[in-house]
Design a protein around this nucleic acid. Structure first.
Lengths: 149, 149
DNA sequence: TCTAAAATGTAGCTAAGGCTACATTATGTA
DNA sequence: TACATAATGTAGCCTTAGCTACATTTTAGA
């Protein structure tokens, strides 16, 4: 027979259910914008480096097929991050440009911070790619403070 | 007319395409195990706190409906993380227990680390929920080193 | 013991984000 | 200029992870 439902074997701090639920909801929300962030950032980079962003280059950058890029671009266009015409280059809207700028800066801070902690560059780059999307402004500020020291 | 394809306006360090592609692939792979990690951790917590893990409690914990929990449990069972019988409690397999332990420890380190940097507790908890899945062993070790100081 | 309520399960939908295979459009060069 | 190749687009599939609505099984209490 199971323990009584109300029993709390508080031998270890157990995460608060409401806080964890809220946190996970937030994480899922963040995940929805992760793709947008990766794409606008890559588009901004490519535009700077090559004069324009093209589907093949994005696919190479993002490690997916051009079909996936196409599909995702349709959504991001629908959501106002970018504009594109068939067989033409891709352009960020002001909205997309703002997001790209934020992401680029945040990425740089996260990578620099990890490296400052002694994480090897390639691993820092790799981890940052996943971590950065979940770094809130407060946490980003804390990273920057630490870097400034 | 667009700039020549080979032009590199290297005014800013542009991320290496192969490294970024590999990093993003890794991030997507991590995302696939994120759900497993959240679930096994919640199941371990609940088992400790209440003697058994039930679907409603998991749903509450994870901030989703019981239907989603059910659906995901089927997958995790298929993948060998846990065992469950209809209308009965959920048990972690040794494989699931190992994963849960790793995740719990990693979570604690990440939260403590963020707090040590001056991030407020609730925000630390919230960010950690998203960040932890992307923290590699090397980065985790760096966090722990920093905490030890 | 019976039954209402709580818990669990199922059907069937949506959206994102992957993919392969194939079709179409641009483009550079012979 | 023509055409082979590269780039782009489309059709149609899969999996994950959400959801609502409804069905079934447990369980607790009268």
């Amino acid at each position: 027979m199971p323990l009584p439902k109300t029993a709390r074997a508080a031998s270890r701090p157990v995460r608060s259910a409401p806080l964890q639920a809220a946190s996970l909801r937030q994480t899922r929300r963040a995940h929805a914008t992760e793709t947008a962030e990766d794409y606008v950032e890559a588009i901004a980079d490519l535009t700077l480096a090559m004069g324009e962003a093209r589907v093949v280059d994005l696919a190479r950058r993002l490690g997916v097929t051009h079909v996936t890029v196409n599909h995702t671009l349709a959504r991001l266009q629908r959501e106002g991050y970018l504009s594109a015409l068939p067989y033409r280059a891709i352009f960020l809207t002001p909205h997309g440009q703002r997001l790209a700028k934020i992401c680029q800066q945040r990425h740089e801070v996260v990578v620099a911070f990890l490296q400052a902690l002694g994480v090897p560059p390639k691993i820092a780059e790799r981890d940052a790619e996943g971590i950065e999307h979940h770094v809130s402004p407060r946490t980003l500020a804390a990273f920057a403070r630490h870097l400034a020291q």
